[in-house]
Design a protein around this nucleic acid. Sequence first.
DNA 1: AAGGCGTGGTG
DNA 2: TCACCAAGCCT
Length: 291
Amino acid sequence: MRIADEVSGWYRSSARDLPWRRDEFHDRYGAWGTLVSEFMLQQTPVARVIPHLAAWLERWPDPAAMATASPADVVQQWANLGYPRRALWLHRAAIEITERHRGDVPRDVDALLALSGIGDYTARAVATFSFGDRHPVVDTNTRRVIARAVEGRSQPGAASRRDLLAMAELLPESAAESAVFNAAMMELGAVVCTARSPRCDRCPIQGTCAWVAAGRPDTGDARPRQARYEGSDRQARGAVLKALRDAAPDGVALDAVIHDWVDAPQRDRAIHSLIGDGLAEASDGMLRLPR
DNA sequence: AAGGCGTGGTG
DNA sequence: TCACCAAGCCT
């Protein structure tokens, strides 16, 4: 209760002005706008999402419009946002929404969870931030704030569904207040209670934070480490897909795809795994974005 | 359920 | 400089 009041109060006075927090954004794009923004924000920083979001929604203003696009168009428009499978999942979700829900983004969390590319975070984010319902919305920021303020640890553990219960404990009674609080916890983790250099001097709950009270101890970090990118298969996939985007719509001759790549077997693995994911297709000796 | 999956900014 | 990190999801 105390945490919610303090964090929500801080949020109301100092939240960043982001596109998806504006009334006109919701008036114009409704829950579809929220859904698209949440897909883009899955592991891509806010600053990189903003320039792409408006262009996407102008081109495909509702799920039915997106459902008529080709996978190639979607992957092309996704550009360099990263993790391009998300573009395919968003496209598939648009088709599912059109077929199962008459083109309207569902409000029910279970219906949202049943859509492609939507998990615990995105389903509850849409239900909460677009429809105003009362759910625990837990992302990496929320987990870090709870780990520190409540549990007195320097970093959260691996993501777990238990996190939903921990956040549910802190939620205000009213749906409207809980929506603000969910956004406020994410905002606090994003700009104050950051992963590396937390700005505790500017924190609204510094006085009640268990981690601060304990002297900000290093309690270790059990989160799984991200694998090295340089030299990885992921890097090769990224290079192949960039070549296909740059050469769209015709594609690239199969024997010329990232021809200078030093590790040839790795390049071939990348090509085949992209085809397996539906991010590329081969025919007539050419590799191109999927039609 | 641990590991795979892009890309770019930063402390 | 370079390892870390980012409004996660899927298998």
